[in-house]
């Protein structure tokens, strides 16, 4: 299997991640295309000393940061973190409301969303995701804990005690 083949098998996951991260179809496809262009041009850099997938996600995230940086001053994508209101439903349903979850993901700070999607959606281990994000595992862990907690609050999941009090 050549590096190009391996890159190709990763495209569906890259698209899924980019869409979930950017929440904008066109922007996500552009980002994936950018990422692929870079990966193809730099594929000699990949030496088999790690999975191609992690390398591609790195490129994708780096590319996204570049784009964001150069767009500073023009478009501002500032997620809301401070003004989190708990959602209304407070039960213990087997499933979360998908619209609520999608909306809540959009309100997570970018770094938390990027981290959570790597482990929760793409199934990466802490070690792998930390490498992709180029942050220490400890930083990633606390980022994930914050993301999960915020998500829980925004999708109406208070701790058991709160639930009792509210009822």
């Amino acid at each position: 299997m050549t590096v190009l083949d391996e890159i190709e098998t990763c495209i569906p996951a890259l698209r899924r991640y980019a869409h979930a991260l950017l929440r904008d179809r066109e922007g996500a496809e552009d980002l994936v295309q950018d990422c692929l262009e870079r990966a193809v041009a730099r594929r000699t850099l990949w030496r088999g000393d790690g999975p191609v997938r992690a390398w591609l996600f790195r490129i994708l995230l780096n590319r996204f940061r570049d784009v964001r940086r150069s767009a500073e001053g023009r478009a501002q994508l500032v997620p809301l973190d401070a003004t989190v209101e708990p959602a209304r439903s407070g039960g213990q349903e087997a499933h979360l409301d998908l619209r609520e979850v999608h909306a809540a993901m959009g309100r997570l700070p970018f770094d938390q969303r990027a981290a959570l999607l790597l482990v929760a959606l793409e199934g990466m281990s802490l070690a792998e995701a930390a490498r992709v994000l180029d942050i220490p595992e400890g930083t990633l862990t606390s980022r994930l804990a914050r993301a999960r907690e915020t998500l829980r609050r925004m999708t109406g999941r208070a701790p058991a005690q709160d639930l009792v009090e509210r009822k």
């Binding site: 569906p12 698209r15 979930a20 979360l96 929760a120 959606l121």
Partner: peptide, 27 residues
Amino acid sequence: DRQDAALATLYNPLADEPVPARHQDLL
């Protein structure tokens, strides 16, 4: 687990879509 299941339900369909031609053309 519920969070992860919701994320999978929300975003997995994107991975099942056919890959856009421009990505394939590039490779």
